[in-house]
Design a protein around this nucleic acid. Sequence first.
DNA 1: TATTCGTGGTA
DNA 2: TTACCAAGAAT
Length: 343
Amino acid sequence: MSAKRPDDIAPKLLAWYDANARVLPWRAPPGANATDPYRVWLSEVMLQQTTVAAVRPRFEAWVARWPDFAALAAADEADVMSAWAGLGYYARARNLVACARVVASEHGGRFPEDEAALRRMPGLGDYTAAAISAIAFGRRAVVVDANVKRVVARLFADDGGQARALADAITPDARAGDFAQAMMDLGSGICTSRAPKCLLCPLRDHCAGYASGDPEAYPPRKAKAAKPVRHGTIFWLEAGPCVLLVRRPAKGLLGGMRALPTGPWVAEPPGLAEAPADAAWGWHPETITHVFTHFRLELRLASATAAAQEAGGEWWPVDALDSAGLPTVFAKAADAMRRVRCG
DNA sequence: TATTCGTGGTA
DNA sequence: TTACCAAGAAT
């Protein structure tokens, strides 16, 4: 089966977009004919596997602090990592700095407009390179994200394997950037993963999935892997008004982020293994549970008071922990500690 | 190609 | 409460 009159899809979708586009801070305001590549790039990276609702306030704060490539290229990487705290997938933040520095040092402060050149920049994969090329520079590019995959799978009643070719077949030469954003708005609000609103869809008459009577069957869902549970210990070591923080290794989970010290994350609770100091550790009554993409982590909290700030790391004022840029799992632990400390 | 990389919203 | 999953990239 295939979509009916595929040449009519792009004009219809663009007309729908002109009337229904979401207003988002990284989109050019109505009437403006220029889109800032820096803002397009930043938003696309922030939006990788991250919801619009989560990104919106972070995007605004980010562009206020680092308004362009030059500012970000000159930033302290530690400050950038802290500013990203809570957004997840922290390699994105490190790649943002790397990319801004490449733009500054090798491209004269401007993004290359060519999709293939964009694809070579740190943190830009097939999707993001195509999106920037189309949205920021008006070039025709085939932009394929999870929304586009789902929409074309339904339009053509495809199993998902031909997504790029099908997207290519309906992408127009003009307004490719608007077309990409229209596909994403459609996927986000109408052609949703569950319970699609077909009666509101401007492409319903073209949709083989709708005609089949079960559009939700496209694309087929993948089997999910079970999440193992790992156990660990978070160490809360105080000295005076401060608590001990460490910097996690650059690679791997929460790479490069400031953190509370932890021992190993293993199948059985590791107790006081790899404690940062020899001290009179006591156990907090609560257990911290945090779910990552591929495992669930159960953490016990051990606390102690040190006579002096001797253990290696950074001693951070407890009252200012909110400014430390801790990933969510450690922010949870800090909240639990402060709840008990304050009664 | 399959895994590893976070987090918060939603049903 | 659990499970799903959202504008993916790197290895």
